[in-house]
Nucleic acid binder design. Structure first.
Lengths: 249, 249
DNA sequence: CGGTAGCTTGAAGCCCATCAAGAGGAGTGG
DNA sequence: CCACTCCTCTTGATGGGCTTCAAGCTACCG
């Protein structure tokens, strides 16, 4: 296991930050940003590295700058359910609570923009632009969690896999709507096992269903992780959602 | 189906409101409360009555004053998953969005304290006490949703039922921790079918598992809805959670 | 080359869904 | 009061989808 991810970074400015306009800081203006920059620092993590164990104290909150991290819960006997998938611009941690409730793990190389907890909590209180953006993002996460609950509770294994691929495609398109015609290329950011933990399945079932979709031409695989989608509408149909993907405006 | 639930209420004051200290308004002080009172009105709904259909415009947000309401998502073929269970003091609706993404249904007699959308959104912007409380509540809901995801994705039918009963017991204890010794009496606020929609099961499985727990003395039933818990620790054990119930500080 | 991590594939079995029938209780009206 | 209906819930029988257990495959790295 690699050591702690304290990054030996030089100075990095918010001006050139890739998530400047989507992260928790996106509504902030000049002096607010300067105040944030004073309490921020970067940390990097390697794939598989644990960012925080459930139950640990965590003395910072953070935005994901690049890479993918997951939040997981675990039952005593080891059964694991992923409950959050953090992509660039997503926020990690909860102001007002210093103990992490879930295991946070880097699933790819991850770079975090971290804010020390105490000053960040003060700023949440004092800077409406910050707390309002955090409220928006938390509500978006709640919507996503509820979509996810529908998947976990009611979809078949095949639908779960198709839904997952659709979710990744949409999030990698990042903002702009996914074109319904034309090829779409995506990179799965999770292992089969992590996908199983995301979807409430076993890794064997994940493998079987992915290969079933491949055999039927719904997806094409190059290597284990790279996926080509020849017909996104077909994928959505397999996912069991509405034609438009069931996304909530 | 009964008509719309516009309540012919007389004046009702926040001073005597049962959810005054837990709802979205709980941090508000004198003049803030007066401003809220100007835009509030009450509506009541009968069991089974639809509060809002998914896709509808909703021109208010609301706090649940009494009773229980549910939020549900539905796939095209009719499969239904409950994604929210709203008990007294819970908040309904999302500032900044006027279309409801889920079906909202009263599962018991429900009384809502409603705020007209537009002025409420202005107040969210202008009154930090309001937006900060809403942020807290939204984060609590997100935590609950994630606990729920673990249940949906990884627990057995038996564990789901035990977990559900434990959740209801805790929420009816409302704040104060559930005593681990002594009898606990609860009232199930849902039909078997609604429980099935909550838990990602069929109503037959719900019925079978409840009666299995009864046969084994984990719960006692009087009528269909009233439950006595002779040993709460035993119930938690059946739920598969940690000894303390897996609640996140 | 061996070792390991990630993935695929096969075989067997169990948990839960599905289909079906009936019991219990509340409300209605004769 | 009883017959009737409707709704909720219970119980039984059957089967399928997914898990579990097991083995082998592929790529990568020492």
């Amino acid at each position: 296991m690699p050591g702690p991810g304290r990054a030996p970074t030089g100075v990095e400015s918010c001006d050139t930050c890739p998530i400047r306009h989507r992260a928790v800081c996106s509504h902030c203006v000049d002096d607010e940003l300067i105040a944030l920059e004073k309490i921020k620092f970067y940390r990097s993590f390697e794939p598989g590295q644990v960012i925080a164990w459930g139950g640990d104290r965590m003395d910072f909150v953070a935005s994901v700058v690049s890479g993918v991290a997951s939040l997981s819960q675990r039952l005593e006997d080891g059964r694991t359910q992923m409950v959050g998938l953090l992509l660039p611009s997503d926020f990690m941690g909860r102001p007002g609570r210093d103990v992490v409730p879930y295991d946070a793990v880097a699933t790819t190389k991850v770079k975090l923009c971290c804010f020390r907890r105490a000053p960040f909590e003060d700023m949440i209180r004092d800077i409406p632009h910050l707390s309002q953006r955090l409220l928006e993002m938390t509500m978006d996460e709640l919507d996503a969690a509820r979509e996810w609950m529908l998947l976990l509770g009611r979809k078949t294994a095949r639908e779960k896999i198709a839904s997952f691929i659709a979710i990744i495609a949409r999030r990698q398109a990042s903002g702009s709507p996914v074109p319904m015609n034309g090829q779409i290329e995506i990179e799965l950011p999770l292992t089969r096992e992590a996908m199983a933990d995301y979807l409430g399945l076993t890794l064997e079932t994940v493998s079987r269903q992915i290969n079933a979709l491949k055999r039927e031409g719904v997806v094409e695989l190059s290597g284990k992780r790279h996926v080509t989608l020849p017909d996104f509408a077909r994928l959505l149909q397999e996912a069991g959602d509405d034609a438009d993907g069931g996304w909530i405006g």
